[in-house]
């Protein structure tokens, strides 16, 4: 009698310990997702802050490109108003597209391209976009790992009990990023 009680008690203790292990693992993964999201967020904010400066500097040189500027400003305010990851991804994709078009137009204005201030802004913008792209990869990796964990047996039992919810991927919408670049053989 005593022995069977001890055995059952021992099993319960083991089960609880196992659940604690899974729970802590899930918390760690969730924190990792949050952390890698904040990495993206910092860069997105920096990009939003850069744009007014960039537009201000370029405006004096590019009198006839009002539409381009309007697109950028509009995309920026949409991106700043985004609430969820999915919304942000969509709006930021549009902003990237608007900025890419803008940079293509800049090629027609050699005076602007010689402006040191503009060149510095352009370099910062390029760097910020790279950082967004690289941070996005890390974020999506951690989301994939976390989502798998909370959906797969047996960790899904613990995940459901303690209300761990799936996270959204930060997916790029614009075509230019998705397209595989051509590699030349020379």
């Amino acid at each position: 009698m005593l022995i069977s009680l001890l055995v059952i008690g021992g099993l319960i203790v083991l089960l609880v310990l196992w659940a604690i292990g899974i729970y802590n693992g899930l918390i760690r993964l969730r924190n990792q997702v949050d952390n890698s999201w904040s990495q993206i967020d910092v860069q997105l904010k920096r990009r939003h802050d850069l744009i007014p400066n960039l537009v201000e500097t370029a405006k004096g040189y590019m009198q006839h490109e009002r539409q381009t500027f309007e697109n950028i400003t509009q995309a920026r305010s949409q991106a700043m108003g985004a609430k969820t990851v999915g919304e942000a991804a969509k709006a930021e994709g549009m902003l990237t597209e608007a900025l890419t078009k803008f940079m293509a137009v800049v090629e027609n204005y050699p005076d602007l391209k010689a402006n040191q201030n503009f060149l510095a802004l352009q370099e910062t913008l390029t760097s910020t976009e790279n950082k967004i792209a690289f941070a996005r990869q890390a974020y999506n990796d951690s989301v994939l790992y976390y989502n798998n964990k909370i959906q797969m047996f047996p960790s899904n039992i613990v995940a459901e009990t303690f209300d761990f919810t799936k996270r959204e991927f930060f997916e790029v919408q614009n075509a230019a990023e998705r397209e595989v670049p051509k590699v030349s053989f020379s």
């Binding site: 990495q39 510095a120 370099e123 910062t124 390029t126 760097s127 790279n130 950082k131 690289f134 941070a135 990869q137 890390a138």
Partner: peptide, 16 residues
């Protein structure tokens, strides 16, 4: 050399 620093910072993010 701002660009060198930018590039290394980008890679720091990429490599974690």
């Amino acid at each position: 050399h701002p660009q060198l620093f930018n590039v290394v910072e980008e890679l720091k993010i990429a490599a974690g």
